[in-house]
């Protein structure tokens, strides 16, 4: 089975990101770039599936050269091959453009299953997986909180507003996994060393017959960036045995009791 995992590289989510006030691009200078923590679940899901069912995991990422670290991390975790699609023109790509580029790379590589996270931690658009599925003309089994493969049938518990749906899908398919679907492994020292000698394809949109596709062709532009208004802080008291009483008074004052 051939599993392709999409991993995105993002500014370290533990630091507050910034946009360049002029270009409105994400400021990358001086910011640590890491594999999106959400994508670790996708890599882990892929590795578990090939470990029980046989096959190979390829990881694909679209982003600047620095994104190599994210790809290498997935290789160190156990993926067999990496693909990085980079081009200055891809900066500022929107969700649809991103999906086009990823879908073209995935198609070129061949796949039985594509795995993504449900949404990226920085962009948080959460539509790239569905768009990839449409472009590849396969089902998108989304928001998986558990995944099993039974022969060539994918059995998934899909998160819903009320609980979950039990979904069965045939391969090939796109699968998006939620955080918590599994326990991502840490790369071993051996894995980290081995990652350096694994095959790595570096592509540009031109290699995918998508020359010129990127930020310039995006169907949307950022027109304004502003700090969100802060909520004013109120009163903070130390509980001297009367904390509960003060809260109850507050609830009365707010007319909820």
């Amino acid at each position: 089975m051939k599993v392709v995992v999409c991993v995105k590289q993002i500014p370290d989510p533990n630091t507050t990101g910034q946009l360049d006030p002029q270009t409105h691009f994400l400021k990358r200078e001086g910011v640590e770039v890491v594999m999106d923590p959400g994508d670790e679940f996708g890599v882990e899901a892929a590795l578990q599936l090939v470990e029980t069912n046989g096959g190979e995991v390829t990881v694909v990422s679209m982003g600047p050269e620095r994104g190599l670290d994210a790809v290498r991390k997935a290789l160190a975790m156990g993926a067999a091959k990496g693909i990085l699609i980079s081009d200055e023109g891809l900066r500022g790509s929107d969700a649809l453009t991103t999906a086009r580029v990823l879908a073209a790379a995935i198609k070129r590589e061949g796949f039985d299953l594509v795995i993504t996270a449900t949404e990226s931690t920085d962009g948080y658009t959460g539509v790239v997986p569905q768009a990839i599925a449409e472009l590849l003309d396969v089902p998108a089994v989304t928001f998986a909180k558990s995944v099993e493969l039974d022969g060539s049938t994918l059995k998934v518990k899909r998160q819903t507003e009320a609980g979950y749906d039990l979904v069965e899908a045939s391969l090939p398919a796109v699968l998006s996994v939620t955080a918590g679907v599994n326990e991502p492994r840490y790369p071993s020292l051996k894995g980290i060393m081995g990652a350096k000698s694994k095959p790595l394809d570096r592509l540009t949109p031109a290699d995918l017959d998508l020359a010129g596709v990127g930020g310039a062709s995006a169907g949307q532009t950022i027109t304004e960036v502003a700090s969100a208004p802060e909520r004013a802080a109120g009163e903070v008291i130390r509980d001297e045995g009367d904390g509960a009483k003060r809260i109850a008074d507050f609830l009365v004052q707010r007319k909820v009791i």
Binding site: D122, V225, A226
Partner: peptide, 13 residues
């Protein structure tokens, strides 16, 4: 974005 610290306006082309 960024944990609701920044508001971004995006216009459709």
């Amino acid at each position: 974005i960024f944990g609701a610290t920044l508001n971004v306006a995006t216009k459709f082309g």
